[in-house]
Amino acid sequence: MIRKITNGGRKVIGKFPSQKMGRMVMWESQIERDYIYLLEFDPEVISFEEQSVCVRYHDDRDSKIHRYTPDFLVTRVGNRVQVVEVKDDKTAKSDDCRQLFQRVAPVIYREGYEFMVVTDSMIREQPLLDNVKLLQKYSMIPISDSHLLSLNDILSNRENMPFGEIVGLMGSRGFLKQEVFALLRHGILSLDLRKEINNTAIVTCLLNSMKCGEEKI
């Protein structure tokens, strides 16, 4: 079941405008917010939901049934569904958390899900995180047919091109650098986000797995 996020006075509460999900996604910590950035840009992630499931498990220490609400339910390509807990490294290694994870993991696996504990050191890998945060800023810039036609002309005889060269050629046609970032944000252009975005970064066009601007037959 979906549990509404409430503010107990100790956690930061915020909303992330997810294009992938078509709605605002709630987060309760800065680490969760940063993880949402990664989910939003991960091409293998089909969908994700925050605190949408409740796991019941037995604790033999008091012989009672307890409830555990993980942070995210993530659906990936290949119909893989992951139950994800987001924690800082120190908390994840604490005795309480390790015992909790040992109790809930078998229940989750029996239901056919994967269980993952994702820590801040895993999430805040650089320059990946800074890159996706940069591209997110250009989410609201619309993409027009003129963008696609220009890309088709520029990349008609090339499979890829350095970022700086694309910016220059698009600029000669009246487009701004921000619009090239928007093309990256919307998945029309692609580059390796685990490397620094600079003028030498190699960019490819992924629109419909065809040349940019070509009409699908």
Rank of each mutant, 00 (worst) to 15 (best):
E32V: 00
P43A: 05
D88T: 14
P70N: 05
H66E: 04
P17G: 10
H66G: 07
D89W: 03
Q51K: 09
P17C: 11
I31E: 07
S63D: 15
F48T: 07
E44H: 09
Q82D: 15
P43N: 09
M26S: 12
D95A: 08
I123N: 05
V107C: 02
V74P: 00
G14R: 06
C54V: 15
G8Q: 04
L73G: 01
D89M: 04
S121Q: 11
I5R: 07
W27S: 02
K4W: 06
Q82G: 00
D34C: 07
G112L: 05
F16A: 02
E32R: 03
R76D: 06
S52W: 11
F72S: 09
C54L: 15
K20Q: 09
Q82I: 13
V104Y: 01
V53F: 08
R103W: 03
S47C: 06
R67E: 13
N79S: 14
T69F: 11
A105I: 12
Q102P: 00
I123M: 07
Q30C: 00
D59I: 01
T6F: 09
G9M: 07
R10E: 13
K64A: 13
V83D: 01
M24N: 14
S121G: 00
D95S: 11
R98L: 08
V74D: 04
V86K: 03
R61V: 13
E40T: 06
N7G: 10
V53A: 06
R23L: 12
G8D: 13
F48Q: 05
E44L: 11
T119D: 03
N79V: 04
N79E: 14
S94A: 11
V53L: 14
I46D: 09
M116F: 09
M116L: 15
E50M: 03
V83I: 15
E28F: 07
A105P: 00
D96M: 04
R110M: 06
W27I: 00
Y57A: 05
Q82H: 14
V25C: 11
R80A: 10
A92C: 10
L38R: 15
D62T: 09
E40I: 06
L73H: 01
S63C: 09
V55W: 02
R103H: 08
L100C: 10
D42V: 06
V84P: 00
V77P: 00
V118E: 02
R23Y: 02
W27V: 01
E28K: 05
I46F: 03
Q99K: 15
R10L: 12
L38G: 05
L38H: 07
Q102R: 14
M24C: 00
Y113N: 06
F41P: 04
F16V: 01
R67A: 13
F72M: 10
S63M: 11
